[in-house]
């Protein structure tokens, strides 16, 4: 990956993270404030809200949506939702997947059963699995996190398990085992460090996949509740007036695509750095 592209990607992710953390400071208005008299305004429009005490004009940088809500604010809070879901899924999936992967790699008895379950989960296309969960539990932040985590965990399990199995072949590990080093210490001192590199790379891809899947579910009306400002929801709501007010779709689409793209580029960069001989390998 070329250097400037990588730097730009880090910059974009940094901006999105800032938006997510400092949402209330950056957003120019309440993202759910409905103002029907100022609906579907184009970007850079000036907004006067007739029924507010404060009648001074605001600038709607990205315009307003079909209910007159400020799109910039919805994007900023949307970043918060995306990042919250993306990071939660990544952290939970990596921790849970590592734990299960270690168990699989260390204990032959558990391996067979657990890996069959993981194979089963991986055999269902991610979006169908997520939709099945959404149907079962109903929409909401925690359901979305749970549904996407279940989809991502098997990938982590496979990775960690393969690392454990390959490291176990090494002579120094075999020596340590014969010397009676406890399994726990063995895992923590010798095996886990070998997994950190590939796990970091996988984590970035999980992050981008989770952000994308959340947006897709929301776009289909199966993800976050409709009144929560998310990128996917904003695109879904903008569909009807796409022809006349395309900014309702292009702006959230740009946020979503650039974020996912940047995270992917960072993931590629990390992989190349950690494993230069695989620089051209497909993932």
């Amino acid at each position: 990956m070329k250097k400037p592209v990588l730097s730009l990607s880090y910059a974009i992710v940094a901006v999105i993270l800032l938006m997510a953390i400092l949402s209330p400071l950056i957003a120019s208005a309440d993202p759910n404030f409905v103002d029907p008299f100022n609906r579907n305004l184009a970007p850079l429009a000036s907004v006067n809200t007739a029924f507010l005490e404060d009648k001074s004009a605001r600038l709607a940088v990205f315009g307003t949506d079909g209910l007159g809500r400020d799109i910039l604010s919805r994007m900023v809070y949307g970043a918060r939702t995306s990042i919250l879901i993306g990071c939660s899924v990544t952290v939970v999936a990596v921790l849970l997947g590592t734990l299960i992967g270690l168990i699989c790699g260390s204990f032959r008895s558990a391996d067979g059963v657990i890996m069959r379950v993981m194979d089963g989960l991986m055999a269902i296309p991610a979006i169908l699995l997520a939709i099945a969960f959404m149907t079962a539990i109903g929409s909401g932040v925690w359901t979305v996190i749970l549904a996407i985590t279940v989809v991502e965990v098997p990938r982590v399990v496979r990775l960690v398990r393969s690392v454990v199995l390959s490291v176990r072949q090494e002579p120094y590990i075999e020596a340590a085992v014969s010397l009676g080093v406890p399994t726990g210490r063995l895992l923590a001192r010798h095996i886990l460090p070998n997994a950190v590199g590939p796990l970091t790379v996988l984590a970035t891809f999980i992050l981008s996949a989770a952000i994308l899947l959340e947006a897709t579910l929301s776009f289909l009306g199966l993800g976050m509740p409709q009144d929560v400002p998310t990128w996917g929801n904003t695109i879904a709501e903008g569909r009807t007036l796409f022809q006349i007010h395309p900014h309702n779709i292009w702006i959230p689409a740009a946020f979503l695509s650039l974020t996912v793209l940047s995270v992917n580029v960072i993931g590629d960069g990390l992989r190349d750095k950690l494993d230069p001989k695989n620089a051209s390998r497909a993932r």
Partner: peptide
């Protein structure tokens, strides 16, 4: 390849 992985299908569609 990078764009294919990153830009959601519905955005490409629109």
């Amino acid at each position: 390849a990078v764009v294919g992985f990153s830009v959601p299908v519905f955005v490409v569609g629109y």
